[in-house]
Structure formats: structure tokens, C-alpha cells
Simulated assay, not measured.
Amino acid sequence: MQLEIRPDPAEVGRARRWARSRLAGSGIQADEPLAETLILLVSELVTNAVVHTGCPAVLRLSLPGAAAEGATVRLEVADRSDRAPVPRCVDGDATGGRGLALVDGLADRWGWSAEGAGKRIWCELDRYAQSHGTATGCPAGAVAFGGGTACEGLAYEAV
């Protein structure tokens, strides 16, 4: 499943609604913690794409079937910007700059890879995982992040 995203901040809400509408068919209930986390991750990755690249993007969502216990949910946002995610140090008063640090804390795995003239940022959630934050299963050529931030206040921004 995929959704074309215009470089407009209003697209973030549309992306969240689109993702919510696909959850029920996969057996993920709207009030399940996985659903809430997934919607937050959609919001963060799509926000980064539309705010920091100024380019159209594509949101892809791979949801397990209703009977797939223990399956992995994969979220990808591909955009036409070749600029890699850049670490940012933010202070406690900053209103932004924590999006990918949040992804790092919530996803079981995440990373990014160059794709043609752009890039793809992805994250995965294990449906019944007990812990988060390990960077495993990265595709070849991908730069993976996981396991928590290296220093307090360090965040990542996709640009």
C-alpha cells in the first residue's frame, strides 16, 4: 500500500488518516499500542519529508494479515532529496529537531538508504515485541540507527 505525498504540511494529517484506515484490515485495533505508535511514526517521518525536503514523497506501509501473529509492520517514506539525515543537538527549549530521535526510541529497527536521486527512510515494528531500539535486519547499503541516542539531547533531522 502506498500514498503519494505533496510537499505540504497538511499532508501529514492526510497520511495519518490513510494509515489509520488500513489498520483494521490487518487485525491491528485502533486502540492497540502498536496502532498508536505506528500513527506517531507516520506523522514524524512524513513531517520530516514535507518540511525538510520540499519534494513530493511516497509513504509505503506493509501491514501483516489478521492471522499473522508476531509479524513485522514496515513503514517507509521515500523522497526525491539526496540529503542524508543529519544529527542535531537541541536544547530543552527547542520546539523541533527531535523527530528521528523519537523514531529511534519507538521503532524496533530503522534506517535509511539512498534510492536513485533520493532516499528512503524506513522503520519496523514487531507486532508483539517486548523491547524496542535494536538495529538489525538492515538492507544492504543502508545506514541504520538504533539502540538509543549516543548523547543526551542528540536528535536526528531528515533533510
Rank of each mutant, 00 (worst) to 15 (best):
Pro9Val: 12
Asp8Gln: 10
Glu36Val: 15
Pro64Ile: 11
Gly54His: 08
Gly27Arg: 02
Val12Met: 12
Thr149Met: 12
Ala71Ile: 07
Thr53Val: 13
Pro33Met: 15
Glu115His: 12
Leu38Gly: 07
Asp126Glu: 10
Arg20Asn: 12
Gly118Gln: 06
Gly65Lys: 08
Pro87Cys: 03
Lys119Ala: 12
Gly146Cys: 09
Arg83Val: 14
Asp31Lys: 11
Arg109Ala: 13
Val90His: 00
Gly118Pro: 03
Ala10Thr: 08
Thr53Met: 13
Trp18Tyr: 13
Glu32Tyr: 11
Arg16Ser: 12
Leu106Glu: 04
Gly96His: 05
Trp110Thr: 01
Val159Gln: 14
Ile28Val: 15
Ser62Met: 04
Leu23Lys: 10
Arg109Gly: 04
Trp18Cys: 09
Leu102Ala: 05
Ile28Tyr: 14
Glu124Leu: 06
Ala84Pro: 08
His132Lys: 10
Met1Gln: 07
Gly146Leu: 10
Arg83Trp: 04
Asp79Phe: 03
Thr136Gly: 10
Ala66Arg: 10
Gly70Glu: 03
Ile28Phe: 08
Gly116Leu: 09
Ala117Phe: 04
Asp93Asn: 03
Ala144Cys: 15
Val58Asp: 02
Gly25Ile: 00
Phe145Gly: 04
Val58Cys: 07
Arg88Tyr: 02
Asp82Asn: 09
Asp82Tyr: 03
Tyr156Leu: 14
Ala68Lys: 08
Arg60Asp: 14
Ala144Met: 12
Gly97Cys: 04
